[in-house]
Design a binder for these strands. Structure first.
Lengths: 242, 242
DNA sequence: TATTCAGCCCAACAAATGTTGGTGACGAAA
DNA sequence: TTTCGTCACCAACATTTGTTGGGCTGAATA
């Protein structure tokens, strides 16, 4: 089996369904000139109309909005293989900002290349559409979590999701995910103090461990049970189990 | 100006940008055999793999999920001109359910027709893509509201959004929107009792009025101020002001 | 070494929200 | 008419979550 292991984008789109070797070759061409970014830097800010699209190679990126009262809400996490802003070409002005959470390695892709992919590579077009729809499904699930689960289950559910998504692109090294507690709070929609309370509960129950501001999951099955995690919304049924 | 006033779908897609007259004609053909549904009936249930896509002509439809503990979360509202489930053709199994909130008039569109639209009508394809991305933006905004605003502002914000979306398709007759307080609660992610508390506050402040379980907005400007509503995420800049 | 600073942690209290149990109005069905 | 069910509404209390303020550590720096 010639599953694409090196190219994260190909690895991610692979989850949408089979790609032909010409598709894989094309995707290799797309990834050129990666660049690094430190943690907590903005890629794009609210109101801009950028000409490039960004692909995450490594690290963690987020979408966020800042309200008038200064509060921040993180509304999406982008992991390796994710394209940050496929929509800018259609929607124009950004209605939110995008920034790094950790040190990142990224690639810029021009609108032209994206349009070439969409127009001339039907399997890739379908896969990109799939990825947009999965992003939407993730948003729905976050909304359910925030509205209808208490913070402890919600946090556990988030960890399950990130675990599953990293596994799906073979980037679940060491079972670690880095986040400050403030970032965690902005994702869950709770205060920093509460995020911390909840995190320490999860730790006391042995559901997660923390070293160096990094969360690790010793037993994913137990965590999933606790969180009542059903991964179907990630639509990873094509994911190779390697 | 030959702005399409009768055909809701055309009216909605018009907001994405200009359509040619052949596009409009095609969209008229798509709308055939509308059927009625009562309030609170399911269109599609979690786990199904439907062969049709549904377009709302009138009434209000919602996406929802039910958790193990029996709690329900409504994660999207579909208004006239909205297509309920464009994604089923790509994602396959539904990861949520879709049901009516009010009496509705709907049209079934087969997957084949959708694929024809996507393949052979590039302006329509772009408009449908636009509409998917706006749906995503709305989800982000709901997430922000739920996580970072108190229930009163959140509710006011919801009313502003529905007002804007109905206005954008010329369906803001009488400035009314119908919802039971339980449904309202399931949208906002609060308890029924709290939804009711908050609604009566808004009423006391004169921001909304209620008759017959229908919410009306006497002064949209004031409500928008209260809710700190910024409509940019709806991406209606092309909307004709008629 | 001393100093800053960011991030984690904790406790006490305040505010927002959830839960329970009850009332009354109303329309549909018997 | 009576019964039944749904929905709006309300009050009292329980729980969750937010806020404030302070202490601790470790890394970076003067």
């Amino acid at each position: 089996m010639h599953s694409p292991m090196k190219n994260v984008l190909a690895r991610k789109l692979w989850n949408a369904g089979r790609l032909a070797s010409e598709d894989l070759k094309k995707l290799d061409d797309v990834i050129a000139d990666p660049f690094q970014l430190d943690a907590r830097e903005d890629l794009i800010q609210h109101g801009e109309d950028p000409q490039n699209v960004h692909l995450v190679l490594s690290g963690m990126v987020c979408r966020y909005k800042v309200l008038q009262n200064g509060k921040r809400a993180i509304v999406a996490l982008m992991l390796p293989g994710d394209i940050c802003d496929l929509h800018v070409a259609i929607l124009g002005r950004m209605d939110h900002s995008i920034g790094t959470l950790t040190e990142c390695s990224l690639v810029k892709i021009s609108r032209g290349v994206i349009e070439d992919l969409l127009d001339n590579y039907s399997r890739i077009r379908r896969a990109l559409f799939w990825s947009t729809l999965v992003d939407e499904a993730i948003l729905r699930e976050w909304l359910v979590n925030m509205g209808r689960r208490r913070a402890d289950k919600q946090m556990a559910h988030l960890f399950c999701e990130v675990h599953a998504r990293l596994t799906a692109v073979n980037r679940m090294h060491n079972a670690l995910m880095p986040l400050t507690q403030e970032e965690l709070a902005d994702i869950l929609g709770v205060s920093t103090v509460h995020a911390q309370r909840v995190l320490s509960e999860l730790r006391n129950q042995g559901l997660v461990t923390v070293q160096d501001s990094r969360v690790a999951v010793p037993d994913i099955v137990r965590l999933r049970q606790f969180a009542e995690f059903e991964g179907d919304y990630l639509h990873l049924e094509h994911a190779a189990a390697e």
